[in-house]
């Protein structure tokens, strides 16, 4: 080491890394995020009999149950979109949110070695946990193709916006996931709260019902839920449902704000991860 001027210098001080240092680290960890995601994907599908079929079965079964329940018992009307298509897309997105959020929130408490025995950009772990679910979403949406053919529906040009809505789904999940992953390290009993939150979330999100009928000031409140806008966009781009209302912009805004809050909370709690886990 004749010249050490170009050696990367790393300073560990009481407050932890600066925001700039953290972003640089995260950028350097992009390959690692890929490896971690691939590890999750491979191990998930190596162990299960159904393999990728599971990605389809989960939303399909949910959709089938609600198809019977809502059309025969309650009697909802999503006309002109067939209810099966409507609820299936809802469940593909919901399954992603629920499963990815859960696995991201437990990423540290389940792998304490990753915190106490080694250091890498810790943001990489919860982010990587959100990636494998995207494969399930794509597989689920592929199954939508024969369903669309059977109902003789075409999504039309809005299909080109699908990648954007998938990105929005990812972003909407990221904020809450970052928060939960960091807080669960410190507060283990938060797990119950998380379970309750997910249950509530399923009811206030238009997964199994149509939200377009909601009117007045409540409507804005309703679309403060990031998933509400994302679902409207996903249905518009895939099954030719009505275009997302202007309030969907609020959903996306809230999703972005939640990512910022999530980053802030994560940074705050990250400092003591190795000491409290």
């Amino acid at each position: 080491m004749a010249d050490d001027s170009d050696l990367p210098q790393v300073v560990n001080r009481p407050g932890g890394a600066t925001v700039g240092e953290q972003f640089r680290e995260l950028l350097e960890a992009r390959e690692l995020i890929g490896f971690l995601a691939v590890r999750d994907l491979k191990s998930r599908y190596k162990q299960t009999v159904f393999g990728l079929a599971w990605a389809v079965l989960q939303p399909l079964i949910g959709a089938a149950v609600f198809l019977v329940l809502m059309t025969r018992v309650v009697g909802v009307d999503t006309d002109p979109v067939p209810y099966l298509l409507y609820v299936f897309v809802g469940f593909v997105a919901w399954t992603y949110f629920q499963a990815s959020f859960t696995s991201a929130s437990e990423v540290f408490t389940r792998n304490t070695d990753l915190i106490t025995k080694v250091y890498f950009a810790r943001l990489a772990s919860p982010i990587a946990a959100l990636v494998p679910g995207l494969v399930s979403v794509v597989v689920g949406l592929a199954v939508l193709v024969p369903m669309l053919l059977a109902y003789q529906r075409s999504p039309g040009w809005p299909i080109v916006t699908l990648p954007l809505w998938l990105l929005a789904l990812f972003v909407a999940t990221l904020g809450p996931a970052l928060m939960a992953s960091a807080l669960l390290v410190r507060y283990r009993d938060l797990r119950q709260v998380v379970g309750l939150g997910l249950q509530t979330m399923l009811f206030v999100t238009p997964v199994v019902y149509d939200a377009s009928g909601i009117e007045g000031g409540v409507r804005w409140l309703y679309y403060a839920n990031p998933l509400a806008g994302v679902l409207a966009g996903l249905r518009w781009s895939t099954i030719a449902a009505a275009g997302p209302p202007t309030e969907a912009a609020l959903s996306l805004g809230v999703a972005v704000v939640l990512v910022a809050v999530g980053m802030f909370v994560f940074r705050r709690f990250e400092r003591t991860f190795a000491d409290v886990i």
Binding site: Q9, V11, P14
Partner: peptide
């Protein structure tokens, strides 16, 4: 892996 309570550690 953890941060100091006070003081600074530097690696080059």
């Amino acid at each position: 892996i953890t941060h100091p309570t006070s003081g600074v550690a530097t690696t080059s």
